[in-house]
C-alpha cells in the first residue's frame, strides 16, 4: 500500500509536533511493507505538488493538530483549492491535540468525516489522540514516550489502509477522566504543571508572568 501523507500543521516542520508523530507512525507503516510520500502544508511552495498528489493517490492521510475545535485555518485554505475526487480515493486522518481527553476531539473528528465526503472521498476513519502538547517541550526519552505509541498505529494503517481496527479506537484513551484523576490532575495543574510551564517560559526567554494582561483596560 502506498499513501499520500499531508502534515496539516501550520507550524513549520522543524517545530511540528504532528511531524514528530508522523515520524513514528511512518516507521510502523514501513514495518508493514507500506510506502508513503509526505508533504507539509506549512510550506506554501509545496502546495502545487500536494494538489497533484491529492488528485493521483488512492490512499490519502492527513495528520493535523486540533485548532479551536476543528481543522487549522491554513489547512482549510489549502483544501479549498483542491479538486474533489470522484469516489475513487479514501481519506483518513490523524487528529491530535494538547487536551488529553477524547471528548475534546470529537467535534473536530465529526467534521473530518464530513470533509472526506465533501472532497469526494470515502472515509477511512480518524486516529484520535490528545495529550501531545508536551512533544515540543520534551526531548529524548520523554518525547519518545509520547510519540513512540504511534508506531503500532502506523503498522495497522500500513496493513489495513484505514483506522477501523478496534485498537485504533482504543488508542484514544478515556473520553473523560474519572473524578479521582480529575482531582489529582487539577491539583497538579495548580502546582507542578504550573511551575513546569513557568520554567519552560523562562527557557524561551519570557520576561513577564504567563498570566499577564497586556491589553487590560485600567
Amino acid at each position: 500500500m502506498h499513501a499520500l501523507i499531508i502534515n496539516g500543521s501550520p507550524r513549520v516542520k522543524k517545530y511540528s509536533n504532528t511531524d514528530k508523530i508522523l515520524s513514528k507512525f511512518t516507521e510502523g507503516m514501513a514495518g508493514s511493507g507500506s510506502t508513503f510520500e509526505q508533504y507539509e502544508i506549512s510550506d506554501r511552495l509545496q502546495w502545487e505538488k500536494i494538489r497533484k498528489a491529492f488528485s493521483e493517490n488512492e490512499n490519502i492521510l492527513i495528520a493535523l493538530p486540533l485548532y479551536v475545535e476543528n481543522i487549522p485555518g491554513l489547512l482549510l485554505e489549502f483544501l479549498s483549492t483542491v479538486e474533489p475526487r470522484n469516489g475513487e480515493a479514501q481519506m483518513s486522518f490523524i487528529l491530535q491535540s494538547g487536551f488529553a481527553e477524547g471528548c475534546q476531539l470529537r467535534c473536530g473528528e465529526a467534521y473530518l468525516e464530513k470533509l472526506a465526503g465533501r472532497l469526494g472521498c470515502s472515509y477511512g476513519g480518524t486516529l484520535v489522540k490528545g495529550d501531545n502538547f508536551s512533544i515540543r517541550l520534551f526531548e529524548g526519552e520523554q518525547r519518545e514516550k509520547v510519540t513512540g505509541r504511534y508506531t503500532a498505529m502506523g503498522r495497522i494503517y500500513g496493513r489495513d489502509g484505514n483506522f477501523s481496527d478496534p485498537a485504533c479506537k482504543a488508542f484514544t484513551g478515556p473520553e473523560v477522566f474519572p473524578l479521582p484523576i480529575r482531582l489529582l490532575v487539577g491539583l497538579m495543574m495548580k502546582t507542578l504543571a504550573k511551575r513546569g510551564f513557568d520554567k519552560a517560559a523562562k527557557g524561551w526567554g519570557c520576561e513577564r508572568p504567563l498570566g499577564d494582561r497586556p491589553y487590560a483596560v485600567r
Binding site: 500543521s9 507550524r11 513549520v12 517545530y15 485548532y67 487549522p72 524561551w204 513577564r208 498570566g211 499577564d212
Partner: peptide, 16 residues
Amino acid sequence: SHCIGCNYCWLKTPGI
C-alpha cells in the same frame, strides 16, 4: 494571517 501555532502568546510574550 493564519495562526502559525508558535505558542509565543502563551510561553514567550504572554497575551501578545
